[in-house]
């Protein structure tokens, strides 16, 4: 695994990936964006990502299923759940099933960057959010 943080971002809304990919690349992360959960799961089957950021409500597959599958296959991977339908029971269930964090949409790219930095620290590869990226 390289020193660069490998992130898979799954959200069925095109705009989310479009906005967040450059925001995360700016802090030196390598980001693969998926809109289709089945394609994302296929990729997860092939590669261990450091962090998976997934939406919860998607037509093809529930983000909670993604969480369970990633957790089973790659226990080291930190999973961050994002949703526009946040509520207390869903948030608690996600944490109980092993999510690293849970964020309600809408959020600013900087909010996600902070959570990614926390996850990176938990993985033992701290990120400097202020460091310039080549």
């Amino acid at each position: 695994m390289s020193n660069q943080l490998e992130i898979l971002l799954l959200d069925d809304e095109l705009i989310v990936g479009k906005r967040l990919k450059p925001a995360l690349e700016k802090i030196g992360c390598c980001v693969e964006v998926f809109q289709d959960p089945r394609e994302a799961m296929k990729r997860i089957g092939e590669k261990e990502f450091d962090i998976v950021v997934t939406d919860i409500y998607m037509e093809e597959m529930d983000g909670m299923q993604v969480l369970e599958m990633v957790h089973d296959q790659w226990p080291r991977t930190k999973i961050i759940m994002i949703t526009g339908y946040a509520m207390i029971s869903l948030a608690r269930d996600a944490m109980e099933q092993g999510a690293f964090d849970f964020i309600a949409k809408p959020f600013k790219p900087d909010d996600l960057r902070k959570v990614i930095a926390k996850a990176a620290e938990a993985l033992g590869s701290p990120l400097d959010l202020n460091a310039p990226v080549n």
Binding site: A91, M95, E96, A99, D101, F102, I103, V115
Partner: peptide, 12 residues
């Protein structure tokens, strides 16, 4: 229990 852990959503 993990369900009572603080998270970005609950802190916000």
């Amino acid at each position: 229990y993990p369900r009572f852990k603080p998270m970005t959503y609950s802190r916000n």
